[in-house]
Lab assay of single mutants.
Amino acid sequence: MGFKLLSKLLVYLTASIMAIASPLAFSVDSSGEYPTVSEIPVGEVRLYQIADGVWSHIATQSFDGAVYPSNGLIVRDGDELLLIDTAWGAKNTAALLAEIEKQIGLPVTRAVSTHFHDDRVGGVDVLRAAGVATYASPSTRRLAEVEGNEIPTHSLEGLSSSGDAVRFGPVELFYPGAAHSTDNLIVYVPSASVLYGGCAIYELSRTSAGNVADADLAEWPTSIERIQQHYPEAQFVIPGHGLPGGLDLLKHTTNVVKAHTNRSVVE
């Protein structure tokens, strides 16, 4: 069995187990497998329904001669939608809004960016022009300005110390501490036991640490421990890039980060 097929099978099995364990909360999309990078042309966006009122959005972007996937989250909030992270750029984010209108038909009224990198804030200006209120932590807003990236308009308070959590509509926002970046936030959907790890969490097929220019490698494993301790009931975990899975993604990420750190020390 090929690795790609095995990865998709694991996603399907995880979703099936969740649907059985929580039949009222989960209505997993039966329309197909989780979209992969090879299936999404740059400039297009796919939506994948995880649970009743919960979707991931998947886009792709060219970077350094390669094409990478990027995940975000959409959560229903009454007759409105909360968006977590842009679709990595203005063109993708405009396509995301169009796809949401086509498939869901509810307005996106608020959006949260989970850290300051372009795959999370690139497209904020498109959201703002569409009347979406954009939010991020003060740290993310400051770092985005320093980096020359787009800056969300509103500040999220109460997320300055490791372990801080605040309720934001249908989700809980959690600051686990520094990891992929010093400002990275985690998003949890309690009604569906869905954990969105953003770039602080890796997919299972990833074996290298990737972009760690703004990471705190020493603190990252401790931050992941905080996530595990705060959300032990999480059933569906979405990484910032690639295929979702279960809580095993947290341990896998820790292993990859520690291996990278150990290699760096040896070198």
Rank of each mutant, 00 (worst) to 15 (best):
2 G>E: 14
2 G>A: 06
2 G>H: 14
3 F>E: 06
3 F>S: 08
4 K>G: 02
4 K>S: 10
4 K>P: 06
5 L>Q: 12
5 L>I: 15
5 L>P: 13
5 L>A: 12
7 S>G: 07
9 L>I: 15
10 L>V: 12
13 L>F: 11
13 L>Q: 08
14 T>K: 06
14 T>I: 08
15 A>I: 14
16 S>V: 14
17 I>F: 08
17 I>H: 04
18 M>N: 15
19 A>R: 11
19 A>T: 15
19 A>Q: 15
21 A>E: 14
21 A>M: 11
22 S>G: 14
22 S>C: 09
22 S>T: 12
23 P>I: 07
23 P>E: 09
23 P>C: 13
24 L>V: 13
24 L>F: 12
26 F>M: 15
26 F>V: 14
28 V>N: 10
28 V>F: 05
29 D>T: 08
29 D>S: 08
29 D>W: 11
30 S>A: 15
34 Y>T: 15
34 Y>G: 15
36 T>E: 15
36 T>R: 11
38 S>M: 09
40 I>E: 14
43 G>E: 12
43 G>R: 08
43 G>W: 07
43 G>P: 07
45 V>E: 03
45 V>W: 01
46 R>L: 11
46 R>G: 10
46 R>D: 07
46 R>V: 10
47 L>V: 12
48 Y>T: 15
49 Q>A: 10
49 Q>V: 11
50 I>F: 07
50 I>K: 02
51 A>I: 07
51 A>E: 09
51 A>G: 09
52 D>C: 04
53 G>S: 10
53 G>P: 05
54 V>E: 01
55 W>Y: 07
55 W>T: 02
55 W>F: 06
56 S>F: 15
57 H>W: 00
58 I>V: 14
59 A>P: 05
59 A>M: 03
60 T>N: 14
62 S>L: 05
62 S>N: 06
64 D>A: 12
64 D>V: 08
64 D>H: 07
66 A>N: 13
67 V>D: 15
67 V>N: 15
67 V>G: 15
68 Y>C: 04
68 Y>W: 04
69 P>Y: 15
69 P>T: 15
70 S>L: 00
70 S>H: 01
71 N>I: 02
73 L>E: 00
73 L>K: 00
73 L>C: 01
74 I>D: 01
74 I>Q: 01
74 I>C: 02
76 R>H: 07
77 D>F: 07
77 D>Y: 07
77 D>L: 03
78 G>V: 08
79 D>F: 09
79 D>I: 09
80 E>S: 10
80 E>R: 07
80 E>P: 03
82 L>G: 01
82 L>E: 03
82 L>R: 03
82 L>S: 03
82 L>N: 04
82 L>D: 00
83 L>K: 01
83 L>C: 01
85 D>Y: 02
85 D>V: 01
86 T>V: 01
87 A>M: 00
87 A>D: 00
87 A>T: 03
88 W>E: 00
88 W>Y: 00
88 W>A: 00
89 G>Y: 06
89 G>I: 02
90 A>P: 13
90 A>E: 12
91 K>L: 14
92 N>H: 00
92 N>P: 04
93 T>R: 00
93 T>S: 06
93 T>A: 02
94 A>E: 14
94 A>R: 14
94 A>F: 13
95 A>C: 04
95 A>D: 10
95 A>M: 14
96 L>D: 00
97 L>R: 00
97 L>E: 04
97 L>Y: 02
98 A>Q: 13
99 E>N: 14
99 E>L: 14
99 E>Q: 14
100 I>L: 08
101 E>M: 09
102 K>L: 12
102 K>S: 14
105 G>K: 10
105 G>V: 07
105 G>L: 07
107 P>K: 15
108 V>H: 00
109 T>Q: 09
109 T>E: 07
111 A>F: 06
111 A>Y: 07
111 A>V: 07
111 A>T: 09
111 A>N: 06
112 V>S: 03
113 S>N: 06
114 T>R: 01
114 T>I: 01
115 H>K: 00
115 H>E: 00
116 F>V: 05
117 H>M: 00
117 H>D: 00
117 H>P: 00
118 D>T: 07
118 D>C: 04
119 D>Y: 03
120 R>P: 01
122 G>A: 08
122 G>T: 06
123 G>W: 04
124 V>Y: 01
124 V>P: 03
125 D>R: 07
125 D>H: 09
126 V>C: 02
127 L>P: 04
127 L>V: 03
127 L>H: 04
128 R>L: 09
128 R>C: 07
128 R>A: 12
129 A>Y: 11
131 G>R: 09
133 A>I: 11
133 A>D: 14
134 T>I: 02
135 Y>K: 02
135 Y>E: 01
135 Y>M: 04
136 A>I: 03
136 A>R: 04
138 P>G: 08
138 P>L: 08
139 S>E: 12
142 R>V: 13
145 E>V: 10
146 V>H: 13
147 E>N: 15
147 E>P: 05
150 E>N: 05
150 E>A: 02
151 I>E: 05
151 I>G: 04
154 H>A: 09
155 S>G: 12
156 L>T: 04
156 L>I: 10
156 L>H: 04
156 L>C: 03
160 S>P: 08
162 S>I: 10
162 S>M: 09
162 S>R: 14
164 D>H: 12
164 D>I: 08
164 D>T: 11
164 D>L: 10
165 A>Y: 13
166 V>M: 12
167 R>H: 10
168 F>Y: 07
168 F>T: 02
169 G>P: 06
169 G>W: 05
170 P>E: 07
171 V>C: 02
171 V>D: 01
171 V>P: 02
171 V>F: 02
173 L>S: 02
174 F>A: 02
174 F>T: 02
174 F>C: 02
175 Y>N: 08
175 Y>G: 00
175 Y>C: 03
175 Y>K: 01
176 P>G: 03
176 P>H: 04
176 P>V: 01
176 P>F: 00
177 G>E: 03
177 G>Y: 02
181 S>Q: 02
183 D>R: 00
183 D>C: 00
184 N>W: 01
184 N>M: 00
185 L>E: 02
185 L>D: 02
186 I>W: 02
187 V>N: 03
187 V>I: 11
188 Y>V: 03
188 Y>M: 05
189 V>C: 03
189 V>K: 00
190 P>M: 08
190 P>E: 13
191 S>Y: 12
191 S>L: 09
191 S>F: 14
192 A>Q: 13
192 A>L: 07
193 S>N: 12
193 S>A: 12
193 S>P: 04
197 G>C: 06
198 G>S: 06
199 C>I: 02
200 A>K: 03
201 I>R: 03
204 L>M: 13
205 S>K: 09
205 S>N: 11
207 T>W: 07
209 A>E: 07
210 G>D: 07
210 G>C: 05
211 N>Y: 07
213 A>V: 13
213 A>Q: 12
215 A>D: 06
215 A>K: 05
215 A>R: 04
216 D>M: 07
219 E>D: 08
219 E>R: 08
219 E>K: 08
220 W>Q: 01
220 W>A: 00
223 S>K: 01
223 S>F: 04
224 I>A: 02
224 I>R: 01
226 R>M: 11
226 R>T: 07
227 I>Q: 02
229 Q>D: 14
231 Y>P: 01
233 E>S: 11
234 A>Y: 04
236 F>S: 09
236 F>C: 08
238 I>N: 03
238 I>W: 02
239 P>H: 00
240 G>M: 04
241 H>P: 04
242 G>I: 03
242 G>P: 05
242 G>M: 04
243 L>D: 15
244 P>Y: 11
246 G>W: 04
246 G>Y: 07
246 G>I: 05
246 G>T: 12
247 L>Q: 12
252 H>V: 02
252 H>K: 04
253 T>C: 01
253 T>M: 03
253 T>R: 00
253 T>N: 03
253 T>Y: 03
254 T>G: 09
256 V>Y: 04
257 V>L: 15
258 K>A: 11
258 K>N: 13
258 K>Y: 08
259 A>E: 11
261 T>V: 14
264 S>C: 04
264 S>Q: 13
265 V>E: 14
266 V>H: 12
266 V>E: 14
267 E>M: 11
